[in-house]
Write a protein that binds this DNA or RNA. Structure first.
Lengths: 131, 131
DNA sequence: GCTTCATTTCGGGATATTCCGAATTGAGGA
DNA sequence: TCCTCAATTCGGAATATCCCGAAATGAAGC
């Protein structure tokens, strides 16, 4: 079908989702690593990873690797589209987004190896790796 | 819960769809009635009706009834959101949108009782109601 | 080499969306 | 009133999306 239209629709679709929109808005206040985002928003890391993949494909975020961690941040300045700016401006006013950012401040104080299986019973032994 | 977020997501979702986006962009060049939109875009009237319902609920379009017809148009000026303006600006550049607008010009020349069952092999012309 | 662990990818059941034709609604004309 | 017909709503099958836990990946350290 029409590739231009598809592309614009896909970019909009990336934003039309509660988790992805919260992730985008959260990154509006600065760079975080994947596990910090997961901890801040209290969702499974795989969900955050998928949300970030979609946002990256849509051209809204970029990644930077540092050691084991992947830090993600918004594209800024000229690289940021009109669309991104408009949506960020809308999202920044939402109560939940402000709460998320506040929570991120707390999470960022923690030393980086965050207990990643966030609330889970860590006592359960992990199975063998290479099945 | 998080009604604000839901609302913003729903507005974005209304835009994240090929047909709805084309309808919105089409109305960017002026008011049309439902059947003119269906004829222009070559889709079932019920699909256009549903697309317009979604766009209306999301606060992007308004309707005006005249006789049997329902004319739809964009909200303009202060009533138009940042979001709408940003997306319209993006969409206006798309080839398919420009083609749709061009086709709408032709459709608008036709006398208004447009042969609504679009696929039907209808060659007869009808009496004029309004230019 | 081996182990650890943040991250990604996979599998898939549950849920939501999309689109059309058919049926219904409602305003206008005769 | 009855008929017409633009528009809307309905039914539902096909398709897409969402979200998680499990498994795989790959970099860092031992």
């Amino acid at each position: 079908m029409d590739q231009e239209l598809r592309t614009l629709v896909d970019r909009l679709k990336a934003l039309s989702h509660p988790l992805r929109l919260r992730v985008l808005a959260l990154l509006g206040s600065g760079e975080l690593c994947v596990c910090q985002v997961a901890e801040t928003l209290q969702v499974a890391q795989s969900s955050v990873s998928e949300a970030l993949r979609d946002l990256r494909q849509a051209g809204f975020v970029q990644e930077r690797k540092e050691g084991r961690w992947v830090f993600v941040s918004l594209l800024r300045g000229k690289a940021a589209s009109r669309l991104q700016k408009a949506v960020l401006a809308e999202a920044a006013g939402l109560t939940i987004v402000q709460a998320d950012r506040s929570r991120a401040d707390t999470v960022q104080q923690l030393p980086l190896p965050i207990p990643c299986p966030k609330g889970a019973p860590r006592t359960a032994k992990r199975g063998a790796h290479r099945a």
